[in-house]
Computed example of a mutant assay.
Amino acid sequence: MATGNRTVRRQTYRQNPSNVRQMYVYGNTVTKPAYEPKRHAPETQRPQRASRQVRKNRRQAMHISKAYVVFMAAAAILMLVVCVNYVQLRSEITSRSKNISAMQTELAQMREENNTRYNVIMDSVNLDEIRTKAMNELGMVYANKDQIVEYDNPAGDYVKQYENIPEDGVLASSKKVQE
């Protein structure tokens, strides 16, 4: 048990089967054993002298030729140019994306405004009032069945009438259009 700064240790000796006494220490501090294990000192080795060929190869490996320096400088400049172009392209793409987003927002606002105006106009038109005014004030009447002529117009979706519609109801006279 520890009381204050002191540690109480209890030492007991036990005998193991080989009749050697061992000491057990209980507590929070353990003393160093009285003996130190032997350490094997590393054998001092003299550095071996390298052969002449090995020294020559090492010197050649440390030597940098002018052609290698020029090649590395050109490669570094090329890499720098490629990196600058890449950064410019990325910034251009980013600015275009922002521009597209702004235009899409503007288009959505214009469509919403257009739909709102269209709905206001359609709500302001009363078809019953127009029919009543056309029949009573302007004297218009519905067409009879014999006045209605149906026709096919394969050339387009609308007709500009400069002459009378033929009796067979076909406006185009070209064979290619009729087929």
Rank of each mutant, 00 (worst) to 15 (best):
C83V: 13
F71K: 14
L80Q: 14
Q88D: 09
L78C: 13
I77Y: 03
N85A: 14
Y86C: 06
M62K: 14
A75D: 05
V82M: 02
K66Y: 03
A75P: 01
V81Y: 02
I77S: 07
C83M: 11
A74W: 05
V69G: 04
L80I: 09
A61Y: 00
Q88N: 08
V70E: 12
L89F: 08
R59N: 05
Y68R: 11
M62L: 10
K66F: 01
A61S: 12
A67P: 00
V70W: 03
M72V: 08
A75I: 04
L80D: 11
Y68I: 06
Y68E: 15
A75S: 10
N85E: 11
V87R: 05
Y68G: 08
M79C: 12
L89R: 07
L78G: 15
Q88C: 08
K66T: 12
R59M: 03
R59Q: 05
L78I: 04
A75R: 10
H63V: 02
C83E: 12
I77C: 06
M79A: 12
A61N: 08
F71V: 07
M79H: 09
M72R: 14
F71M: 08
V81P: 02
I77A: 12
A73Y: 07
Q60G: 13
M62Q: 15
C83P: 06
A67D: 06
Y68L: 13
A76P: 01
S65M: 00
N85M: 10
A61H: 00
K66W: 02
M62E: 11
L89D: 08
K66H: 07
Y86E: 11
A74Q: 12
Q60S: 05
Q88K: 07
A67S: 05
R59S: 05
V82Q: 02
A67Y: 01
A74V: 10
A67Q: 06
V84I: 03
H63P: 04
Y68H: 12
L89P: 06
Y86F: 09
N85Y: 06
V84G: 02
M79V: 13
A67R: 05
V84E: 02
M62C: 14
S65H: 01
N85K: 10
V84F: 09
Q88M: 09
A73M: 14
Q60M: 09
Q60K: 14
A67V: 03
F71N: 14
A76D: 04
M62S: 15
K66A: 15
S65D: 04
A67M: 03
M79P: 11
Y86G: 13
Q88E: 15
A76K: 00
A73C: 06
L80W: 02
A76F: 03
M79L: 15
L80A: 14
Q60H: 04
F71T: 10
M62N: 15
Y68S: 13
V82K: 01
F71Y: 14
V81N: 03
A74R: 15
A61M: 02
L78N: 13
I64K: 07
V81T: 05
R59A: 06
V82R: 04
F71W: 10
R59E: 04
V69T: 07
L78T: 05
Y86R: 08
K66D: 14
L89C: 10
V81R: 01
F71E: 15
A67I: 01
A74G: 06
C83L: 13
Q88A: 10
A75Q: 13
A73P: 05
